[in-house]
Amino acid sequence: KKTCTFCKKEIWNTKDSVVAQTGSGGSFHEFCTSVCLSLYEAQQQ
């Protein structure tokens, strides 16, 4: 099972999830929504 990098909820429907390359290492992270992605990126600043 996949979990959201930001909120840690399980991702049930992968077509609704967002995968983004974030951080200095350029690793890929999966998020349940684009909202979680935005919040995660804001936290990394």
Results as ranks from 00 to 15, higher is better:
G26W: 04
A20T: 12
V18F: 08
S17T: 01
V35F: 14
S34N: 15
S34R: 12
C32E: 01
T33D: 11
F6S: 09
S38I: 02
E10L: 07
F6D: 02
K9D: 05
S38M: 05
Q21M: 06
S27W: 05
L37D: 07
I11S: 06
A20M: 04
L37S: 09
T3G: 07
K9G: 09
S34Y: 05
T3Y: 14
S34F: 02
V35Q: 12
V18K: 14
K2I: 12
Q21G: 13
C4D: 01
D16K: 03
T14E: 15
W12V: 07
S38A: 10
V19L: 06
K15W: 04
Q45S: 11
T22G: 11
C32A: 01
C32Y: 00
V19Y: 11
F31D: 02
T3E: 07
Q21P: 12
C4S: 00
K9E: 07
T14F: 11
C32W: 00
T5P: 03
S34G: 11
T3A: 04
K2T: 07
K8W: 05
F6V: 07
C7H: 02
Y40Q: 10
Q45P: 11
V35L: 13
E30G: 10
S38R: 11
Q45L: 09
L39Y: 06
Y40T: 07
F6L: 09
H29S: 12
T33S: 14
Q44H: 11
C36Y: 00
F28W: 04
S38K: 12
K8R: 09
S24Y: 03
K9Y: 01
H29N: 15
F28N: 15
H29W: 08
F6H: 04
Q43D: 11
F31P: 03
E10W: 07
W12A: 11
V35P: 09
L37G: 12
C36N: 02
K9T: 04
T14Y: 11
D16S: 13
L39F: 05
G25T: 08
L39C: 06
E41F: 01
C36I: 00
E41G: 08
K1I: 13
L39T: 12
S27D: 10
A42W: 03
F28K: 15
A20D: 06
G25F: 04
T5S: 08
T22C: 10
T22L: 07
S17I: 06
Y40K: 09
T14S: 10
D16W: 02
Q45C: 10
S27Q: 10
E41C: 02
G23W: 04
G26S: 12
T22S: 08
C36P: 02
T5Q: 04
N13C: 02
D16M: 04
Y40H: 11
Q43P: 14
I11A: 06
E41Y: 01
N13E: 15
H29F: 06
W12S: 03
Q44V: 11
G26P: 13
E30S: 08
K8M: 06
Q21W: 02
V35K: 12
S24G: 14
V19M: 11
T5F: 05
F31R: 02
I11K: 05
E30M: 05
F6C: 03
T5M: 10
T33N: 07
C4N: 00
K2P: 02
T33K: 08
A42G: 13
F31I: 02
T33L: 00
K9N: 04
Q21C: 03
K15L: 01
Q44G: 14
Y40W: 14
K9A: 08
E30T: 11
V35R: 11
Q44W: 06
K1N: 14
V18H: 07
D16H: 09
E10M: 09
L39A: 14
F28I: 08
G26Q: 09
G23C: 09
S24K: 09
C4E: 01
K15Q: 11
C36F: 00
E10H: 02
N13V: 10
E10I: 08
K15G: 11
L37A: 12
F31C: 08
E41R: 10
T33G: 14
K2L: 10
I11M: 11
N13M: 10
C36S: 01
Y40P: 03
V19G: 14
F28R: 15
L37Y: 08
L37M: 13
S38Q: 14
T22P: 14
Q44K: 09
E41D: 09
E10A: 07
G26F: 02
K8Q: 13
E10N: 06
L37R: 12
K2R: 05
E10K: 06
S27M: 09
A20E: 14
F28V: 13
